[in-house]
């Protein structure tokens, strides 16, 4: 993916979430955002997803500048798959319907082809048995896997994960991270916000360290983790890797 951000600022009710984020990436396949809570990681991801409009600055993905009219935002969102921390499946729909809804309503699939295609994906992710269940009948890990299938199904050019395992226990975390690692191995382009440092290191081509709404450090994952340059990153790694 090619990403170009110039001076992106986002404020909520006087709180500055992003304080002039600039970035230029040309050949990273997987980008991982790390940093302390409230540092701006999720906000940055939401700006890239077209869910949040920056107050200032410009965003360019693969050479296309992000525009903020409702029409072009909807077009942009349709080309991107987002997986949220709290799964955000629709509770009134079955797992299968959760996946087919965007296919049918936003991507012009017929109902039957959408269903067949979704079942095929469920098969690939060992979810066939759960296709007819509502989210409340699924474990957190299963819900998140369905959410990942929903994001993948629309063949997005970019997958965004916003702390996809923060709401899961360790065992379920593993089953979700396995899928993300698998996607990474398939050379899918993805951006991941995570607190799982070991995993971040494993899947990231490029790593960004955000704190106080700014990118404090940016570089290949190996370099960031083995030779942190800033005091903030050293402090952060020291704290999160302590236990």
């Amino acid at each position: 993916m090619r990403l170009r951000l110039k001076g992106v600022v986002k404020r909520y009710h006087g709180l500055t979430a992003l304080d002039g984020v600039s970035l230029q990436l040309s050949d990273a396949r997987s980008v991982v955002l790390i940093g302390p809570s409230g540092g701006g990681k999720s906000t940055l991801l939401r700006v890239l997803a077209g869910l949040e409009m920056p107050d200032q600055g410009s965003v360019e993905i693969d050479g296309e500048p992000l525009e903020y009219s409702e029409q072009s935002l909807i077009r942009h969102r349709r080309g991107i798959g987002v997986v949220f921390q709290s799964f955000n499946l629709f509770p009134h729909l079955t797992a299968l319907e959760n996946v087919t809804l965007p296919l049918v309503q936003a991507h012009g699939y017929g109902k039957v082809p959408a269903k067949e295609y979704a079942m095929e994906l469920f098969g690939r992710f060992q979810l066939e048995a759960h296709a007819g269940k509502r989210p409340f009948e699924l474990s957190g890990g299963q819900q998140q896997r369905v959410a990942i299938v929903r994001a993948l199904a629309v063949k997005p050019r970019l997958l965004l994960f916003d702390e996809p395992t923060s709401a899961l226990d360790p065992e379920m975390t593993a089953e979700v991270l396995d899928i993300i690692a698998e996607l990474r191995a398939q050379e899918r382009e993805l951006i991941l916000v995570t607190h799982e440092m070991g995993f971040a290191r494993r899947v990231a081509d490029h790593c960004l360290f955000l704190g106080a709404g700014r990118i404090l450090e940016s570089g290949p994952a190996q370099q960031l983790f083995s030779e942190p340059q800033t005091a903030e990153l050293r402090g952060f790694l020291g704290r999160v890797l302590k236990y």
């Binding site: 909807i74 077009r75 969102r77 987002v82 955000n88 629309v154």
Partner: peptide, 8 residues
């Protein structure tokens, strides 16, 4: 937000 994210 989820609905927006899937492009509805």
């Amino acid at each position: 937000e989820s609905a927006r994210a899937i492009g509805l």
